[in-house]
Nucleic acid binder design. Structure first.
Length: 275
DNA sequence: AAAGCACCCTGTACGC
DNA sequence: TGCGTACAGGGTGCTT
């Protein structure tokens, strides 16, 4: 599942394309293009040059010259791959951009949930997003106020991109495990120490996962734009570890459903009423 | 504001 | 081997 570390890895890989011009655009699955219509998308994209590549939450931002942004969300199974000249599309190819040097920027997406947007105003798409967890402005004090102003269960709140961007099911479970906090705790009941622990856990998990180039699991074969798998899966403590030993205390990891999402935690290290 | 659910999709796992 | 079905998940939109 591409979350912040995976999207960051892809964005970094894509910087290799800065300076290339988009020569051709092929759309194999129309609904991948969220806006504008695919005919307009194709027409406007052709001839533009890739000037800069960034990330906001789980969105990849490809800044074009002379103007415009190509925004890409990988959702569940999307991949952005840099393919050498002459690579043929496969059954999962949804959009294929050919660059002026012959290389291809290949959007592949088994489940067809991924989306592309071409716009002059990225805030139309990104305007409602919450703060970046690795931004220096995202301090424990800021987080404390954010949590205190809500009274939701932590797990769904951490997944809410309007609250805080970048966490998905994997890193939300991992961060709560690292912090030793139960996923059903209400956000406004955390002690100051717990807020600090959760804040630190979120940042450390994300930073370490970025350093490992993300998490590649069997059922959601995330890879970077260069096709490399992420190496963080081996360091997961809770996510998808149902029945396995907690690395800290050896208690069996449990799985519950919270907000329609599978949620993994250690019933010993993460007690519902705190300690 | 919070929470539940249907929906969008398809590969995989599982029961028979 | 094969069929049918449940499940996984990010995000949106609707309802309670």
């Amino acid at each position: 599942m591409p979350e912040l570390p995976e999207v960051e890895t892809v964005a970094r890989d894509l910087r290799e394309l800065v300076g290339s011009r988009i020569a051709g655009v092929l759309v194999y699955w129309e609904r991948t293009i969220a806006s504008p219509g695919s005919a307009t998308f194709i027409e406007r994209l052709k001839g533009r040059q890739i000037e800069q590549v960034g990330r906001r939450g789980k969105w990849i931002l490809i800044h074009l010259s002379p103007s415009g942004y190509l925004l890409v969300h990988l959702r569940m199974s999307g991949r952005l791959l840099i393919d050498p000249p002459g690579t043929q599309p496969d059954k999962y190819t949804r959009v294929l951009l050919t660059l002026d040097d012959g290389r291809q920027l290949h959007f592949s997406d088994v489940r067809k949930f991924g989306r592309m947007v071409l716009t002059d105003d990225p805030d139309e798409v990104l305007g409602d997003l919450g703060p970046e967890p690795l931004d220096p402005d995202f301090t424990a004090d800021v987080f404390q106020d954010m949590l205190a102003s809500r009274r939701a269960r932590l797990k769904p709140l951490l997944l809410n991109q309007r609250f805080l961007v970048g966490l998905g099911n994997i890193y939300a479970d991992e961060a709560l495990w690292h912090a030793g906090i139960h996923p059903l705790r209400r956000s406004d009941t955390l002690t100051p120490e717990e807020v600090i622990r959760l804040h630190r856990a979120i940042q450390e998990v994300l930073e370490e996962a970025i350093a490992a180039e993300g998490t590649t699991l069997r059922d959601a074969q995330y890879v970077g734009a260069d096709g490399r798998e992420g190496q963080f899966a081996r360091r997961l403590a809770a996510y998808a570890k149902t029945g396995e030993e907690c690395p800290r205390c050896k208690t069996a990891i449990e799985r519950i459903v919270v907000g329609q999402r599978g949620t993994h935690f250690c019933p010993h290290c993460q007690q519902e009423l705190g300690h």
